[in-house]
Design a protein around this nucleic acid. Structure first.
Lengths: 242, 242
DNA sequence: TTTAAAATATGATTTTTATCATGTTTTTTA
DNA sequence: TAAAAAACATGATAAAAATCATATTTTAAA
């Protein structure tokens, strides 16, 4: 037990999940910002914090979630297994987002699975706490409602794109979306790296098709790659893809 | 002006949109049921009621809606024009549903167009009234949130189906969905009649493809038709379509 | 009620995408 | 670090769906 002595206060709190919600900047990015100081302190007292390794399952379709995850760091995919046995990625969830709120509000088991795309750090807030805030803090509920309205709009737009755009067009869109929403590193590579299979699973196509199209984009000078990493070389060109 | 004398009190109120929300059973089917009697009386005083003819546009993409519609009778489609010039139907909205709440909550112009599929009767409640209730009645906001969570789940599931199922499979699903959600008439025909173009626009395919597949379903004895009307002859068969 | 327009229907053809097959590269693990 | 596994790549072929063309039927309008 001697090694505990080397932990600083910060590291110790961090390790066992005792860092304070009131002082956490992450909450500014989601509906938790609408909570009062007292509510945050209460949540701080019952939340748990944990790390999730790349590839780990946070929850699966059908699981009872019983709470909400606040993503402190990392990225995960929300996907659903279709009848033909293929996974369809519905949404990418990143640092600052909440996870599991839909199931919690609908009082249902998870409709989607959440799997980490890189190492993550997440806080888990039990259902009872969130529900009590939803019932008593109208600002919080309204903020949650606004966020859900935004998600619904995005989902509707994805339906239209799925139905009306070609696979090539959708794949170009995904690259642009990732670039615009999640940014790039210092060498302009997309900050989120996905496997070709993941790209196929977002676009809703066969893995081979996704690979083929990315190769074509490369030949046409629209993108370049370094291993799994992708850099967009011609944004306008990608936008023109049909 | 003499004809006004023939109107009964009921008809008169009905005509100029003065029937009372407190007494309207339709609200039991949507979030308005969470409002208090006082709130309903207040809304009654400022809502307007109108009829919409088949084919009429209730609102279009980009319109500022400035309120919420409560569907007293009839059905409409929510659609979006895609880049290739085709309309994609995202959702069917029926008697009892609310319309426009997403744009109102997000404080945005309409993302979708709403067009009547048959003659409709709708009440319009101005934005200010709804917003004040959202800010002051947590039960109402929570109910709205739960409804929105449900819509989001449905949208996510549509994305998966769009991406992973064949056109034939999706068309079979739509027929079953309409049958299960909107019911049939006394002769078992689907109570909602859609053009082949509308079916194509829900499924996300070419009109000719939708026509062809419906013809095939007919040949296979899965459905029968009488003009535009469709009757499902073999539910299990439709469910097995791949 | 005749005519025009729209919706339905179906064939032929092309395009898009999936599937199968096989090889190469990269990553993981023993 | 060598072997195994996973991911990537690409060709050949098949299947699905779109497009174009052209009737026919139904509906709406003059």
């Amino acid at each position: 037990m001697i090694f505990i002595m080397f932990f600083s206060t910060f590291e110790y709190k961090h390790f066992i999940g005792m860092s304070k919600c009131e002082q956490c900047i992450i909450r500014q990015f989601n509906s938790l910002k609408a909570l009062t100081k007292d509510e945050l302190i209460r949540i701080s007292g019952c939340k748990t914090s944990r790390t999730v390794k790349k590839g780990d399952i946070i929850f699966e379709e059908g699981d009872s979630i019983n709470g909400v995850y606040c993503i402190k760091d990392g990225v995960c995919k929300l996907s659903k297994l279709s009848a033909n046995g293929k996974d369809q990625i519905v949404k990418l969830v990143v640092k600052g987002d909440l996870l599991g709120q839909r199931s919690l509000i609908g009082d249902e088991s998870a409709n989607l699975s959440a799997v980490a795309l890189n190492d993550m750090e997440v806080c888990f807030i039990p259902k009872s706490e969130i529900m009590s805030d939803l019932e008593n803090n109208p600002k919080f509920t309204l903020d949650m409602l606004q966020q859900m309205a935004h998600d619904l709009k995005e989902s509707d737009n994805v339906i239209v794109d799925m139905a009306q755009k070609s696979v090539k067009n959708r794949l170009a869109d995904v690259l642009l979306y990732i670039s615009e929403h999640f940014g790039t590193d210092d060498a302009d590579y997309l900050s989120i790296t996905l496997s070709r299979e993941d790209y196929a699973s977002i676009v809703g196509t066969a893995t081979e098709s996704a690979i083929r199209i990315l190769s074509q984009f490369k030949k046409e000078g629209l993108i370049s790659t370094k291993g799994k990493q992708i850099r967009i070389e011609d944004h306008e060109g990608l936008r023109r893809v049909e």
